[in-house]
Amino acid sequence: MEGLILFAVSLLSLGAIYTILCLALNLEAGTGPLWDLGIVSFFGVGAYAYTLVTAPPAAAYQGYILGLGLPMWMGLVAAGLAGAIVAWLIGLPTLRLKREYFLITTLAFAEAIRQIYVNEEWLTNGVAGIYGIAQPFKQAVASANYGYLLLAIFLVGLTVVALLVHRLTASAFGRTLKALRENEPLAMTAGIDPRRYSMTVFVIAGLFSGIAGAFYIWYATLIVPTLFTSDITFFIWTAVIIGGLGSMRGALLGGFIFILLHDLLRFVQVSADAAVALTSLRTAFIGVVLVLILRFRPNGLFPEKPVKNLLPDMLKEASNA
């Protein structure tokens, strides 16, 4: 029983990290106009930036740059900045493209970046990866209870990101993003420069995803290139679509629902052979759920709804009088 609870805590921690990614993706692709199939790029770059900045210098048998051994909070800042900068660099060429081409190109960039982790051993220690990365406040609680503390940290991070995303969405900037999503030529006649605002939201998504990458390192305590395949991108898209693209609640719950669906089968007590079979079936199971959602609730479990009562009410009475 104890083990199951610890497992559930670990699952929720991963869910919180995924949910930050969901919020970032939903901001750019649900509220905004960017069909980004490369969100894993910022996640991975953030994770590597965190690791390289906070890890001790590379040992003789390793090869990676920096290893500055800086404090963790500086690692977090570096992760966010790295995500944002990479988003900006990828955005420079790709934001000139129309939606479908943007989607293909961001996917290609994500794959190219993963190949860099794998092949540039002087930079990232390649496929051997970096292990034993320190976790925050490790000494503060008994190691048996550390999972709870880590979950709490992630939930605080998630809350901060959620509040920021909520504020961004409700502002004039958020309406600008929606206008670009809905009808770009008309948005231009409202004085909106599509590239400027697309770039802004792309960089913000990169920033949040980069920070999620650092959290992921706290969770995993190791970094290897296979953590950052495009599977992550598709998982996050699936989660956001299950929740409801364009809906804040959808993004918040979609991440957790996805993780639950993805790892629920682990709770089933079966023989080792059956467990292997079930593991292979996980992705198929998610696929079936996605098909069912798209068939019966195409706008997700918590669809985007019209914004009500945006204007102050007393004025309405005044104008009716």
Binding site: K178, E182, A187, E304, V307, K308, L310
Partner: peptide
């Protein structure tokens, strides 16, 4: 803008 309210 189809999925924005009249106000928006």
């Amino acid at each position: 803008f189809p999925r924005m309210t009249v106000t928006e």
